[in-house]
């Protein structure tokens, strides 16, 4: 998952980015002012935008309105030092999905971020299941038919991303965009290697089982959910 963090207070931005990378393993891009935040958000590669309200050059509320005006439906979590019902009502009515008042709890920020990403992808439960796979996004563990599969952080992130939309085809570019921030070198063969390892580990967990990740030549990857399969809820 890739998060855009728009916060002008450098130290706070550093801490939040570190926490989001460390904890749920998100890729995080930081913008120190509203305009560069707006520019980055224009790439549409984010699964969540965390937005401070008081920003130089373009304030958070205006940025939020610009986002929504151009039809960007990325979940937005607002960080605010403002108080009062009116300000919060105005925020939510302007298209914010959630808010946190400063000074906030880092654990709460992470939990809300995860929930917003999940909801943004149409999932409500933190444990996602498909094809006998069970991805627990809280513990960051993966089981296949009840057997625990040990994955590297990147492999886990790829699987987590894929299983949020089990039927969708993701190109390598999609995966690159959503799993790495701008500080990474973009090489699609990195993805190929990780997906290959991930597939091997998942298939080795239950010998003789069908492969869970399909490769569609020239198009990308998807969870191998045939038409006869249904996704068990939660």
């Amino acid at each position: 998952m890739r998060v855009l963090l728009v916060e002008d207070e450098v130290r706070l931005a550093d801490n939040l980015a570190a926490a989001l990378r460390d904890g749920p393993g998100f890729a995080v891009d930081c913008a120190a002012d509203g305009l560069s935040g707006d520019n980055l958000a224009g790439n549409r590669c984010y699964d969540l935008i965390i937005l401070d309200l008081m920003l130089p050059r373009l304030d958070g509320l205006s940025l939020l309105r610009r986002l929504r005006a151009r039809g960007d439906s990325t979940p937005v979590l607002i960080l605010t030092a403002k108080e009062g019902k009116q300000a919060i009502i105005q925020l939510l009515n302007s298209g914010a999905d959630d808010y946190l008042a400063k000074p906030f709890d880092l654990g709460e920020l992470i939990a809300r971020s995860k929930a917003l990403i999940r909801r943004g992808k149409g999932q409500s439960h933190p444990v996602l299941s498909a094809l006998g796979l069970e991805v627990n996004t809280l513990e960051q563990t993966v089981r296949r038919n009840g057997v625990l599969v040990d994955l590297s952080p990147t492999e886990y992130r790829i699987l987590e991303y894929l299983i949020h939309h089990p039927r969708r085809v993701f190109s390598k570019r999609d995966l690159l965009e959503h799993l790495y921030d701008y500080n990474w070198e973009h090489h699609s063969n990195v993805i190929e290697a990780h997906v290959s390892n991930l597939r091997k580990k998942l298939d080795a967990a239950v010998p003789g089982a069908e492969p869970v990740i399909e490769t569609l030549r020239g198009r990308g990857y998807r969870m191998a959910v045939g038409p006869e399969h249904t996704i068990e809820p939660g």
Binding site: R11, L12, D22, G23, K102, P103, D105, L106
Partner: peptide, 22 residues
């Protein structure tokens, strides 16, 4: 002033919580 103070407190708090994350 409230924004500045809250932000400064948020920095301190997040620094400590980040340390305790793992």
């Amino acid at each position: 002033a409230a924004h500045e103070l809250k932000t400064a407190v948020a920095v301190v708090k997040s620094s400590l919580q980040l340390l305790g994350l793992r």
